[in-house]
């Protein structure tokens, strides 16, 4: 993947001019590219005058940051307490089996990412899965199958596995 160095530098520069912190610069980059390229950490550390070790510490401490690129389709299974008692572990299990990924992993072809989130605050609808930003509520293994199949079909991956 081509890393848009100039663009990234502009983001960091903008934050630096605003007097913003390392965290806000990294947040911007994460939002834009859905991960923090290695180059971004180096640039941020140089421009904002913080040691690279500190930039790395911040990038690995907060859940919002990822050092690896995310897949084209991102599934987030809510594992908040309300979803948990309503059966989200079974849903997560099922999706893990179907995608062949563990929570937190991205497929080799960068097609799918599977993540867990701690409570989205839509507990009335639990268990919840967010697919590319779209919420689906009251999920179970069967309904998550339907959801996956829809995406497989859209991608021409017409396999029930």
């Amino acid at each position: 993947m081509q890393i848009p160095i100039v663009e990234i530098y502009e983001i960091i520069n903008k934050e630096a001019r605003k007097g913003g912190s390392l965290i806000s610069a990294l947040e911007e980059i994460q939002t834009r590219y859905r991960y923090l390229p290695r180059e971004a950490l180096i640039l941020a550390s140089e421009r904002l005058d913080v040691p690279l070790s500190q930039a790395y510490a911040v990038a690995t401490f907060y859940n919002a940051f990822s050092l690896k690129p995310k897949g084209k389709h991102c599934f987030q299974v809510c594992v908040g307490t309300a979803c948990h008692v309503r059966g989200s572990p079974q849903v997560l299990d099922h999706i893990e089996t179907k995608l062949g990924l563990k929570a937190g992993e991205t497929s080799h072809d960068h097609m799918f990412s599977l993540e867990t989130v701690n409570c989205l605050g839509a507990c009335a609808l639990g268990p919840i899965i967010v697919t590319n930003g779209e919420y689906s509520g009251q999920m179970n293994a069967k309904k998550s199958d339907t959801l996956l199949r829809r995406i497989f079909r859209a991608e021409g991956l017409d396999k029930n596995e």
């Binding site: 594992v79 409570c119 507990c123």
Partner: peptide, 10 residues
């Protein structure tokens, strides 16, 4: 508000 299952602050 990080406590899972609580969303009143939000």
């Amino acid at each position: 508000e990080g406590d899972p299952g609580a969303y009143m602050d939000r």
